Simulated scan of single mutants.
Amino acid sequence: MNYQPVNTTTDTSFLPMISVVVPIYNGEADLPELISCLLSQTYPKDRVEYLLVDNNSSDRTLTALKTTAENCPITIRPLSENQIQSSYAARNTGIRAAKSEIIVFTDADCRPQPQWLTSLIQPFAQPNVVIVAGEIVALPGNTLLEQYANSQETLSQKHTLAHSFCAYGQTANLAIRRIALEKAGLFRPHLTTGGDADICWRILRQNIGRLEFAPEAIVQHRHRTTLKELESQWRRYGRSNRYLHELHGVELMREITPTECGYRLVRWLLKEVLRNSVKAIAGKATVLDLLNTPIGLFTARVRYTGQRDAKLPEKAKIIERLTTTENHIDK
């Protein structure tokens, strides 16, 4: 699937009503920074509604949402999804309540930059554009694992936009035209990972419209800081690959065998460590340069394990649909 990055800074005359959907689970601590980012948006405040969907949190998220909505200069609509514990089910709740033709997605732990909405919306001025993906960059981090993820640009949309099966955008920074959701269906509410790829592929492979990349529509996201968090992240990537294989026929990743892993570690010890140690003494290499290979092997092994052990739940095949009574769009 081809797409072209577009310049979103030249023409800002296209200002449709938009709905921003944010699923939140135990996000009370994230709310102040998130709301601050939403308040700083350059997009006209009277053209945006923010649908913040609590997904059965055990903290005070829903109470905080309601309090914030009462005292905020932007339109915040607190919603609740208590039936299904899934960010995709929460997004569907937001979509059903949305009043706009264009629906934008981000997450509670993301930090949208001020030009985010202005840049993300402009490609929709072309009627055949139905999906726009903005860029995701890392929040500043100092730990070794954050530096590793940053060097790999783990969060960047460039990886998903270049997917060998079909391009897609991650829901941390994504906008979809409502008509595309009406035709292709909503998120699979029981899916726990891979739902962003699934919904984009259903839209694009039905030839409903085009996907555009808006690189200046930037959302910042925090990298994982501990080995446990990194393991969970890459195991989830593996599960996603298995689910998308069963739903769309995506090619499964190949296992790095113990022999291959051992060979690469020996090569790392005998060549890379020696070379980078000399560079480090000269101030031309860092600890990250020394440990890049073993961290990469670790994430690859964890991802494969996640793929190997995953099994798509039967309920995850369900696609929710918008009904005609839910098509209450404000222009």
Rank of each mutant, 00 (worst) to 15 (best):
R254W: 02
P78C: 05
I218Q: 06
G194E: 06
A214N: 07
N82F: 09
V48N: 02
I102C: 05
L38G: 08
D196W: 03
I208V: 10
I179P: 01
R205S: 14
E70D: 14
G194F: 02
I256G: 00
T143P: 00
V250H: 00
E146M: 14
T225R: 15
T75E: 03
E33C: 08
G134C: 06
E182Q: 14
R254P: 03
L139M: 14
A167P: 10
F187T: 05
E229G: 10
T192L: 08
I218Y: 04
N128Y: 09
K158D: 12
L244D: 05
R96G: 07
N56S: 12
A90Y: 04
V278N: 07
A310Y: 10
L117V: 12
L39M: 13
L230M: 12
I281S: 07
R178E: 03
T193N: 12
L51A: 07
E81I: 09
N55R: 01
S40G: 09
M1H: 13
T192P: 00
I319M: 09
M1S: 14
R96F: 07
T118C: 07
L211N: 01
R267H: 13
I329M: 06
K284N: 11
A184C: 11
E326F: 05
A310H: 10
P32Y: 14
K183P: 06
T68H: 06
I121M: 05
V20S: 00
F14K: 06
W234G: 02
A162M: 13
L38D: 04
I218H: 01
L34R: 02
I103W: 03
Q233K: 12
D309Y: 10
L244H: 08
L270K: 06
K284D: 11
Q170W: 10
P5C: 09
Y43M: 04
R202S: 07
I318S: 00
E229K: 12
R222H: 15
R177P: 00
I179N: 00
N276R: 13
A138H: 15
P16V: 00
G296W: 08
L31E: 14
N276H: 14
Y88Q: 08
I203S: 02
D30G: 04
C200P: 01
V266I: 15
P5W: 09
I179S: 05
I95Q: 06
T8A: 10
W116C: 11
T226D: 01
K228D: 11
V53C: 01
L15R: 14
V21C: 09
I95C: 06
I218A: 00
